[in-house]
């Protein structure tokens, strides 16, 4: 068996083992590679942060998720909720997927553990699960009156009686509609809420669909985009360096990597607040491994092609 045959016929389970090792080692022994931020994430952070301390602006979060996207999207959920709770930004949450509703509940209670002063129905309101068929009617209805369109929160209490809803009437009071989604992210909000009421829309997506949404960023139909674990890691770091130290967002500071690293060192973040960032070391090593796989595979292919050509010439 020559080299190219050997490359082609290697048992795929060896490849599986190599990949597993490439992911496990950086998780156990972090390389501490720095996270750099990209414009769509900075723009989203800035946009959300502008609602800090106001009681007539809220971030609306739609959890269009299922467990299959948990490792990528859950860190986003946590990072955005932490940002809002740290900077006193009102949050409204909803899910049109039953499992998304469970993830939403999980995320809120996990973040809330660190914020005993944050009160349900005062600082945030969980609307709970709604059937998918109601997505368009509720999205449109919220443009006129949020309380009438949604009616009750997850616990069944009518929205018009809740303190948080006193100054939150319709999309005029929504800072951004943020859909964190593993499916067709943002389409409903772009097509209906943005087109009809002009509300700002942003999305958090699995990396699979991140590249597909760049046209919406250029048109301004999206004000920000978090793509996959990398997007979550970037947002996590912005929360750590700015919101955690109660510093308002500043573009100059955001681009100053040494200042950010210094802030990051000072905050001494526990593991649970840097889930996405820890994963990024493993992500980097695994990407390099996949590239090596592609290169080796192609070397074998070209050797084989040359051998075939030589045979033909002889």
């Amino acid at each position: 068996m020559n080299f190219s045959d050997y490359i082609q016929k290697i048992d795929r389970r060896y490849i599986f083992i190599i990949l597993a090792i490439a992911v496990i080692l950086p998780l156990l022994f972090p390389l501490g590679l720095p996270t750099f931020t990209t414009p769509p994430v900075l723009s989203l952070y800035k946009h959300i942060d502008e609602a800090a301390g106001t009681d007539d602006r809220a971030v609306f979060m739609d959890f269009a998720q299922s467990p299959s996207t948990l490792p990528e999207l859950y860190p986003m959920d946590l990072a955005i909720l932490r940002h809002c709770f740290l900077r006193d930004i009102k949050v409204l949450t909803i899910s049109y997927y039953p499992q998304g509703a469970a993830i939403m509940q999980m995320a809120i209670s996990e973040v809330k553990e660190d914020f005993p002063d944050v009160k349900q129905d005062v600082d945030y309101c969980n609307f709970g699960f709604r059937n998918f068929a109601l997505r368009v009617p509720i999205t449109l209805g919220m443009g006129d009156n949020i309380a009438e369109a949604v009616e009750t929160n997850a616990a069944g209490r009518r929205l018009e009686n809740l303190p948080i809803m006193e100054k939150l009437k319709n999309y005029d009071n929504i800072q951004v509609c943020m859909e964190i989604s593993g499916a067709a992210p943002g389409i409903i909000y772009i097509n209906y809420a943005r087109a009809r009421y002009g509300v700002d829309v942003a999305i958090g997506v699995t990396a699979v669909s991140a590249a597909d949404n760049y046209p919406y960023l250029q048109t301004g139909q999206l004000v920000g985009l978090l793509g996959g674990l990398k997007g979550a890691a970037e947002y996590e770091e912005l929360v750590e360096t700015f919101a955690n130290n109660d510093i308002p967002y500043s573009e100059k500071k955001a681009q100053n990597l040494s200042w950010r690293n210094q802030q990051y060192e000072l905050s001494k973040v526990p593991y649970k607040f840097k889930q996405a960032r820890i994963g990024m070391d493993a992500q980097a090593v695994a990407h390099v491994l996949i590239i090596i796989f592609i290169i080796i595979g192609n070397i074998g292919y070209f050797i084989e092609k040359r051998q075939d050509k030589n045979k033909y010439v002889k």
Partner: peptide
Amino acid sequence: MARLSLLIGRLQ
């Protein structure tokens, strides 16, 4: 990137 992130999440 997406598929690897899912694996990283589980191994984490």
